[in-house]
Deep mutational scan, measured.
Amino acid sequence: YTAFGDLEVFLHGLGLEHMTDLLKERDITLRHLLTMREDEFTKNGITSKDQQKILAALKELQ
């Protein structure tokens, strides 16, 4: 049995499950992801397509 964390649930909701391992390897938490700047997305290997999905979701949360 494995409990999913906030990061996994957030990514799954956006259809971005493939990013879970990448972000965990880089010790990026959901809190960090929510406050990242555009250059940090790129530096951490997050594609512009995935970045757009994340940023759109963040706008909806605000």
Rank of each mutant, 00 (worst) to 15 (best):
I46H: 00
H18L: 04
A57W: 07
D27P: 02
L58F: 08
D39L: 05
L34R: 11
E40G: 04
G5A: 14
E17I: 05
F41L: 12
G13F: 03
R37Q: 14
E38M: 05
G45W: 00
K49W: 02
D6R: 06
K53W: 02
F10M: 05
R26H: 06
N44C: 13
D39N: 09
L14G: 04
I54G: 04
E38N: 08
V9W: 10
N44H: 08
D27E: 10
T2A: 04
F4V: 12
R37K: 12
E38F: 03
M36A: 01
T2R: 08
Q51G: 11
I28C: 02
I46T: 02
H12E: 14
A3C: 09
E40A: 04
H32C: 07
M36L: 04
L61Q: 15
F10Y: 07
R26C: 01
I28V: 07
H32W: 01
D6A: 10
N44K: 07
H32E: 14
K53T: 09
R26P: 03
F41W: 11
L7V: 02
T29V: 01
Q52K: 13
N44Q: 11
K49E: 11
L22S: 13
K24W: 07
T42E: 12
T20E: 06
E8T: 06
G15L: 01
G45E: 05
G13K: 15
L11R: 00
L14C: 14
L34T: 13
K24N: 09
D39G: 08
K59E: 10
E60K: 15
K59A: 11
M19Y: 15
A3T: 14
Q62N: 15
I54K: 05
T2D: 04
L61D: 10
I54P: 05
H12N: 15
N44E: 10
E8I: 01
G13Y: 05
H12A: 15
T29P: 04
D21W: 04
A3N: 14
R37E: 13
M19H: 09
L23Q: 01
K43V: 08
L58W: 09
I54N: 02
G15F: 00
E60A: 12
G15R: 04
K53V: 11
K53E: 06
M36P: 00
L22K: 14
A3Y: 09
K59R: 12
Q62A: 08
S48I: 12
D6G: 09
L61R: 15
L22T: 12
L11Y: 00
F10W: 05
L61T: 15
L22V: 13
R31E: 13
